[in-house]
């Protein structure tokens, strides 16, 4: 029972996330406005300059996120509402962390090998499938994609050392 309780506990409140996102978007708006200011924000004879629209877009983002920030700060009622519970966050991380590893691997060992590993890892770890089912499926999917993209449609995808070794790149 105690375990259930811990997974129901909030990992972050709506307010905390709301405030963080508002700050991040504010920063984004500020960067946009700043760079646009650099390239010119006036309205000349030939209409608006390159920075005109982005500058005001940046300002609107800053202004609106300030409003959201202040509102979230004031809203007492919502302050304890949970954004995501620990259990939920754990589930999301189960997908997100392997996905991050996967996309990083794509850049290093190519998309086919990393896809095989990624699908295989998921089936073994989350799906609790045996090796006997996992390996053929994971390899099969990658081979199918290889045939589809590289052979039939001639679309080159990222490849790594294994493909080079096999002379497939």
């Amino acid at each position: 029972m105690s375990e259930d309780h811990s997974s129901d506990r909030s990992a972050a409140s709506v307010r905390a996330v709301e405030l963080t996102v508002a700050v991040l978007f504010f920063a984004l708006g500020a960067i946009v406005a700043w760079d646009s200011y650099r390239i010119g924000t006036s309205w000349g004879d030939e209409g608006p300059q390159a920075g005109y629209f982005p500058f005001y877009i940046g300002l609107i983002i800053c202004f609106s996120t300030t409003l959201i920030f202040v509102r979230a700060l004031w809203a007492k009622a919502k302050s304890h509402e949970s954004f995501v519970s620990r259990g939920q966050l754990k589930m999301v991380m189960k997908m997100l962390v392997p996905s991050i590893v996967y996309v990083v691997l794509v850049g290093i060992i190519g998309i086919y090998v990393s896809s095989t590993l990624f699908i295989g890892f998921f089936m073994l770890w989350l799906g609790k499938y045996g090796w006997l089912r996992t390996v053929p499926l994971a390899v099969g999917v990658s081979v199918a994609f290889f045939l589809l993209f590289e052979v039939w449609f001639n679309v080159p995808l990222p490849k790594g050392p294994l493909e080079a070794l096999l002379g497939l790149d």
Binding site: V106, I119, L126, V141, F145, V155
Partner: peptide, 20 residues
């Protein structure tokens, strides 16, 4: 199709899509 198979496959498809 069970989630633990289709979810990673979807992600792979998305990654290919983004790359191309």
């Amino acid at each position: 199709i069970p989630f633990s198979i289709i979810a990673p496959v979807i992600l792979v498809i998305c990654a290919i899509g983004a790359f191309t």
